[in-house]
Design a protein around this nucleic acid. Structure first.
Lengths: 152, 152
DNA sequence: GGGAATAGTGGGTAATTGTGGGAATTACTA
DNA sequence: TAGTAATTCCCACAATTACCCACTATTCCC
């Protein structure tokens, strides 16, 4: 399971060093590769270990083609899914299209999210984060019931 | 169950000595590790024993991805949750981002809070504390029904 | 109260991890 | 087929982290 935060740099060639604690999880055991695709809900990317991705792919395949949102989600996620392999230094090369989609330039942020890792441009993420914190602080924006009843 | 107050120092490397009475609880029995994440409601951090955290993680995983606030809550709490292990002196290394979020510099304060321990910068805590005490005492700010009916 | 154990604090060193860039290889385009 | 761009492989440096040791303060116990 992925959790935790890392800030990593993306070099001029578009390479990103996967934090060492994720390496075995992401590429480790069975397959040597992981899948990176876009997150249709935010301007960010998702990294899956290959076995996890295959589960997602099955779920996507089951979505109806006759519902617009489902079809688009399917197209997007599958269409942009790329296989990556770690190089000898434990880095992956982020495809240019995906980098551009997520607006990733020099510094990026990795957020462990259970079965996947979410990858944001650092500035973009900080903006989102501050916005969200402010909303919570304000007490405005009426949290949904699921949140109201959440005890941490 | 965690309760009680401790003031501890955070050294120049960002390490914090977990008070000995918490050690067995936090890392003890089963797993050797604990999870530290941010408290989205205040500028402070939360420390969970791993088993407790896993309960929280399950709750978070159940939140909808299609509601913005829920999604952000999920991203933040899981995204910033870092596994920590005690070193031989019973200390943990606080990740830099979390230290910065909570404004923790040299001296910190630990507050037992049932299933978790809350971690504040000492100055920050003192300020907040005085402010709240005053608010409560004033009787301004309309307490919610749940508080009204609370007998201490 | 004195001594021993435990707890808290600080810092040095070695290993690991993250980062950048050059050179060689491959793929793509005109 | 030549030229350009993109990718891979490799080496080297810098920063961070883990591990270890030593010292001080506190607590506990006789």
């Amino acid at each position: 399971m992925f959790r935790g935060f890392s800030s990593v740099s993306v070099d001029s060639k578009g390479r990103l060093a996967v934090p060492s604690r994720y390496r075995t999880l992401l590429s480790g055991q069975v397959s040597d590769s992981l899948v990176i695709t876009l997150n249709p809900l935010d301007r960010s990317l998702w990294l899956y270990p290959l076995p996890e991705w295959e589960i997602i792919e099955t779920k996507l395949a089951a979505l109806s083609d006759f519902d617009m949102q489902s079809r688009r989600t399917k197209q997007m996620m599958r269409g942009y899914a790329s296989d990556c392999q770690l190089d000898n230094q434990g880095r992956i090369l982020l495809p240019r299209e995906l980098r551009e989609y997520a607006g990733i330039t020099h510094q990026a942020v990795l957020l462990g999210q259970g079965n996947k890792v979410e990858l944001w441009d650092e500035d973009g993420w900080n903006t989102q984060r501050d916005q969200w914190l402010q909303q919570l602080g304000d007490g405005n924006g009426e949290p949904p019931d699921s949140l109201r009843s959440l005890s941490l």
